[in-house]
Design a protein around this nucleic acid. Structure first.
Length: 431
RNA sequence: GGAGGGGUGGCAGAGUGGUCUAAUGCACUUGUCUUGAAAACAAGAGUCCGAGCAAUCGGACCGUGAGUUCGAAUCUCACCCCCUCCGCCA
């Protein structure tokens, strides 16, 4: 959400933002509604002021004859007030609906473009591994090594279900623990965050109404979050923070749920696209300063790239174009990791900043030097998302005999340098 | 799940139908005193919306929403959250 004053003073910027983001939003129509809103507020407030004064008179009036005439005046006024209030309620509803659609202003460095194909590759790092053999995909590798069981995953969960087991489960814990240590060294405070959250917070982050189809819902009208961004923003909701305590730097672990509705044809098997996964997320709340937002955006993105590099994985940085940016963001990088089986890069993280677009809706402020509360800035970026990251690791570290070399950084967390066979013995499945 | 108590400004906490323009304390800002600081004393100070160049003025806000009333922090209803006790439970 943007400041209504800002919108009124800069309608052309909003128009330009909508154009660049390829969003269908009629700024002029919105401004008309805004004008209606302001004039109705004026009328209603004027009537209320009158009503108060007359009410006081009633309390003081002595004779009953005086009372009768004043009461009649009041009655008429009340009827009018009710009528205007009803109108205002209606206009407010429309206004609020439109306010949710006003797009955030994209940064000048965001490239033009209508969608994913127009995103720009701005950095490539790490050479894809060269294999003396035909590399296998993670499904084959991990199934053979009994690191995953997709068949039983589907039996238990349904479409896109999976079990991690043996070295597969160990590898998952190793990545989490390594990531926790890695990001703690970079001054992030660790959290384990809830995923079942109240509906309102999804509007505040901007996930609703846009992604309603992609969210799971409970019978209590709560939603399951697809990212710890939502609980970590809700964490400080409605608070006034001390400027001296900024920036807040959080590393939040949470389960993540995404229905993946509308992508049934994509990645139909394996660990690339699942409906339940686990993620560590970097989240920063900082002072309302563009330079600071930009600085932390670059930093969090670099943190992830450094993390991936320390795991020895090839990756590239993609600058997201206007049409693929989403209404709420100022700018976004995706880090994509190399998958040998697909001979392509797949998304591993997403780093975005929002200015005060989210904090305005969450009502997260801080007391600035002049003593006045100000809306803070917020930004977030993936730190480690499993099991997709596990798939990248096994594919890039596979060896000719089908075993997996454990990346050096993870060895201390695995107690194992090569994954060759399952920990425990399991008798063949009776059919 | 059952019973009871509660939600008031940055924090603590009074207020149970009409000068509430929300007491008081802490914290905060400024001033006096002091070499400086502390202490003491004095004054100021909530948030949001709207009008105005401005001093200022109007309105809203006491968990959220609806209602009763000429008038609601105060009464009624629903919901959310917190605390205490009981039950269940990893």
């Amino acid at each position: 959400m943007l400041d209504i004053k800002f919108i009124k003073e800069n309608p052309d910027l909003i128009k330009e933002a909508a154009r660049k983001k390829h969003l269908d939003f009629d700024v002029d129509a919105f401004l008309e509604v805004e004008q209606k809103r302001v004039s109705l507020i004026g009328e209603v407030e004027g009537l209320r002021a009158k009503q108060k004064k007359v009410g006081e008179q009633v309390a003081r009036t002595g004779t009953s004859r005086d009372k009768v005439s004043v009461m009649k005046e009041l009655k008429d006024m009340k009827d009018e007030l009710q009528e205007q209030e009803a109108k205002l309620t209606e206009v407010m509803k429309e206004w609020q609906g439109l306010m949710l659609q006003v797009p955030n202003i994209p940064d000048v460095s965001v490239p033009e473009g209508g969608g994913e194909p127009d995103n720009q590759e701005v950095l490539i790092k790490g050479a894809p591994p060269k294999f003396e053999f035909e590399p296998k995909d993670h499904i084959e590798l991990m199934t053979k090594l009994q690191m995953i069981d997709l068949e039983r995953g589907t039996k238990a969960h349904g479409f896109r279900g999976y079990f991690l087991q043996n070295a597969g489960a160990d590898l998952s814990w190793a990545v989490w623990n390594y990531a926790r240590a890695f990001f703690s060294k970079r001054d992030f405070r660790p959290f384990v965050a809830p995923a079942i959250l109240k509906k309102e917070f999804f509007y505040a982050t901007g996930h609703l109404p846009r992604e309603a189809e992609d969210l799971y819902k409970t019978q209590d009208d709560d939603y399951l979050s697809g990212t710890a961004e939502v609980p970590m923003m809700a964490y400080h909701g409605g608070e006034i923070l001390n400027e001296a305590d900024l920036p807040k730097r959080y590393l939040a672990f949470s389960p993540c749920y995404r229905r993946e509705a509308g992508s049934h044809g994509k990645d139909i098997k394996g660990l690339i696209r699942v409906q339940e996964f686990f993620k560590l997320e970097q989240l920063i709340i900082c002072r309302a300063d563009h330079a600071e937002s930009e600085k932390f955006h670059e930093e969090t993105n670099k943190n992830y790239e450094d993390f991936i590099e320390s795991l020895g994985l090839p990756f590239r940085r993609v600058l997201i174009c206007g049409g693929d940016l989403g209404g709420n963001k100022v700018k976004q990088y995706d880090t994509e990791i190399w998958f040998p089986s697909q001979q392509t890069y797949r998304e591993g993280s997403s780093a975005a900043y929002y200015h005060d677009f989210q904090t305005r809706r969450f009502n997260i402020r801080y007391r600035a030097e002049n003593g006045k509360p100000r809306f803070a800035h917020s930004l977030n970026c993936t730190a480690a998302a499993t099991p997709r990251l596990l798939a990248a690791l096994v594919e890039n570290y596979q060896q000719a005999d089908g075993s997996i070399k454990v990346p050096e950084a993870l060895v201390p967390y695995m107690d194992q340098e090569v994954i060759t066979s399952p920990h425990g013995q399991e008798s063949p499945r009776a059919t």
